[in-house]
Design a protein around this nucleic acid. Structure first.
Length: 673
DNA sequence: TTTCTGGGCCTACAT
DNA sequence: GGCCCAGAAA
């Protein structure tokens, strides 16, 4: 037993923050405007529970939006409580990670195998594409998938899916079939993680009670972006003993398209009428001008609950406005400004972020930064896991973990080339469907007894045989021995290394692929070292649940390019909000679909409030798309920012000429020191 | 006949 | 980078 740690000090907190931290049992809502010290409140609340109220850390669950946020929160709690042991057993995780844990432990009650696969977006699309092909319907899989995903986030089962019109009935039938296929493969998709956990808790009371007892104290970050499924899970998980604290900012709700409800706080207040309310309004991040600009944009939302943020950080510089003739010009001007500001203000490159609406916007900025020899990171763009070699390797790992995982099997069956094509696979699939056996069994039979599976050519049969031998050997390697060594053998001996080199466009690309593969091997090695009981299943879960924010390079000494959605929760001294024009903010899709532009307004608000000191808005007068030149108009939200906050060409930049000159000479001098 | 290869097209926001 | 289609290659 560890000695009781010394109670943490609450001296640095303002009165509202302190209320939120020391609130005892029951429901608690914390309205935390941008930059008002939300994470501080959560971590201090955890610290307070542990050190003042002697709650064992293992009884506390903190739910965050991303794994990255979870890791940061854990680190901050560690920093708060010097006695490490006191926080041992604390659970900080995302909803999805928590559900994986629940389902690995207790999913067998639902008939879910312990080694179930987790399907990502491309697996889902592949599955849907297959169904649509079977039904001879020509339709983009993404559209059907979006409908299914939205239904799941709203807790609508295939049986409960509406049949009001032909479209609904069609989606319903695809949805039903999709779920059957997933179940047959021992697989769940991302949304299912939530749904299955909910079903598990509602069907098996004793399982629910077990988890409830485990976490009497629950804290939820970014509560405004919780969807119906997540909220339901939360309500199942909390039995009313202990405390349930939800923290968030309805002005920063930007995930309605993912099934988050318009006003989660209102729902919470209805469900827990006795909930204590705390509102945090003192902003510790931004200058008054930035807050005024943000306020101008957000205040226009009809029916919004007014809360005025204030700060003591002074006016700061005026807000910059950069207008480019086209996307490249916008980027060039932004980078020029960034260069000067970095130099004049004696900033680090880390202090700068370029915020974009869509990933496609990053290209011109990357080009301009490269041209200026300024290092940068694009956060969460084409992720590590989208790379061909990584998908090949994880395909193998997934198949070895669960040989019913058809998506993985199809990915790797002809990698490296084994002479198996569409015809061979179609023949095997036909047999599998006719005889209700898994696809892999059909392949196995085609090899063992060639005549039983019609339509498989000699070449394909030889390929199947080769694949079966290889995976049998690999499975043995992974189950018996050192997983890291087994992965290296897979890369070296299964022909993948040669395959990646041979199919690369340039030798350099081949090298990069091998490096990518070795990076995955290092990730496995790190996992094996850290985990108490390393398993392939568990490692794969970790990989599936990694968020796109996590695989980014260290941003030290680099400018950050990041989407508005991914930037939520972050802050930078200098922020460029790019593409402030109709089409991006608000996005064309939100206008076309006649959706509420309020969410676009909130997204702009999120962008503005990332800035600590200097904010620059930029837009382009035209953009070319598919060779076409499109004229662009400035965003309507620009009109909502009070004119006097925006710098005119006559205004002095942050650094005066003298300062500029002084900095120049001192940096030249540094070169010689 | 089946697999392989090259070129055109397209791509919100993401756990 | 993936998908789809057309034509080359085995």
């Amino acid at each position: 037993m560890s000695a009781t740690p010394r109670p943490i000090s609450l001296a640095g907190l303002n009165p509202e923050q302190r209320q939120a931290v020391v609130h005892s049992d029951g429901a608690l809502m914390i309205f935390a405007g941008a930059g008002t010290g939300k994470t501080r409140v959560i971590t201090n609340r955890i610290g307070h529970l542990v050190t003042h109220r002697r709650v064992p850390a293992g009884r506390i669950l903190a739910v965050t939006f991303t794994n990255k946020a979870a890791r940061e929160m854990r680190e901050r709690v560690d920093g708060l409580i010097p006695k490490r042991e006191a926080v041992k057993g604390l659970t900080v995780s995302t909803f999805h990670s928590l559900c994986v844990r629940v389902l690995r432990d207790d999913g067998h009650h639902l008939g879910l195998p312990q080694n179930f696969s987790i399907f990502g977006e491309s697996d889902q699309k592949g599955l849907i594409r297959g169904i649509l092909t079977d039904l001879a319907v020509d339709m983009p899989p993404a559209q059907v998938l979006a409908a299914i995903s939205l239904a799941k986030n709203r807790l609508i089962t295939p049986e409960g899916y509406p049949e009001e019109n032909a479209d609904d009935s069609f989606i319903k039938s695809v949805y039903q079939r999709y779920q059957t296929l997933l179940a047959g493969m021992g697989a769940v998709d991302f949304d299912d993680l939530m749904l299955h956990a909910i079903r598990l808790f509602s069907t098996f009371g004793h399982v629910k009670v077990g988890w409830q007892r485990r976490f009497p104290h629950i804290l939820v970050d970014e509560f405004q972006d919780t969807n119906q499924a997540q909220y339901t899970l939360l309500r199942q998980l909390w039995d009313g003993s202990g405390s349930l604290a939800v923290v968030g900012d309805d002005d920063q709700a930007i995930y309605a398209w993912r099934g988050a409800e318009a006003d989660m706080f209102a729902r919470f207040a209805e469900d827990f009428p006795k909930a204590r309310k705390v509102v945090l309004t003192q902003n510790y991040r931004s200058t008054s001008r930035i807050l005024a600009a943000a306020g101008g944009v957000i205040e226009k939302i009809p029916g919004r609950a007014e809360k005025r943020l204030w700060s003591q950080l002074g006016d700061g510089p005026k807000i910059g406005l950069i207008v480019g003739t086209d996307a490249d010009d916008e980027a060039t001007r932004v980078v020029e400004d960034l260069n000067v500001a970095c130099f004049a203000g004696r900033h680090e490159l880390t202090d700068f972020a370029i915020l974009i609406r869509t990933n496609a916007q990053s290209r011109p900025f990357e080009a301009a930064l490269r041209q200026a020899h300024i290092p940068y990171v694009v956060v969460g763009a084409t992720g590590f896991f989208d790379r061909a070699e990584i998908r090949d390797l994880t395909g193998y790992l997934r198949f070895l973990n669960n040989d019913a995982d058809e998506a993985a099997l199809r990915r790797i069956i002809n990698v490296p080339r084994r002479g198996i094509g569409a015809q061979g696979m179609a023949a095997a699939a036909r047999y599998a469907a006719d005889h209700s056996v898994p696809l892999f069994d059909a392949m196995d039979r085609a090899v063992a007894a060639p005549d039983t599976v019609p339509g498989v050519s000699g070449g394909a049969r030889a390929g199947f045989a080769q694949f079966i031998d290889l995976t049998a050997q690999l499975r043995f390697d992974f189950e018996r021995g050192d997983m890291v060594a087994a992965l290296h053998r897979l890369i070296e001996q299964a022909g993948l290394k040669e395959y990646w080199q041979d199919t690369a466009d340039t030798p350099r690309q081949g090298e990069l692929r091998l490096e990518g593969a070795l990076e995955l091997a290092r990730m496995l090695a790190r996992y094996v070292q850290r985990a108490q009981e390393p398993t392939l299943t568990d490692f794969l879960s970790h990989l599936s649940l990694l968020d796109r924010l996590e695989d980014d390079k260290d941003s030290k000494g680099r400018v950050t390019i990041i989407t508005l959605h991914a930037a939520k929760g972050l802050e930078f001294p200098n922020v460029y909000l790019a593409g402030m024009e109709e089409g991006f903010l608000p996005h064309t899709r939100s206008v076309e679909e006649n959706r509420d532009v309020a969410e676009e307004r909130r997204l702009t608000y999120v962008g503005i409030t990332r800035a600590q000191r200097r904010l620059v808005l930029s837009h382009a007068q035209s953009r070319s798309r598919y060779g076409e030149r499109l004229k662009r108009t400035p965003s309507r939200f620009l009109d909502d920012i009070p004119r006097h906050l925006i710098a005119t060409p006559d205004d002095e930049p942050e650094g005066t000429n003298q300062e500029l000159a002084a900095n120049f000479f001192s940096s030249v001098k540094n070169l010689f020191d």
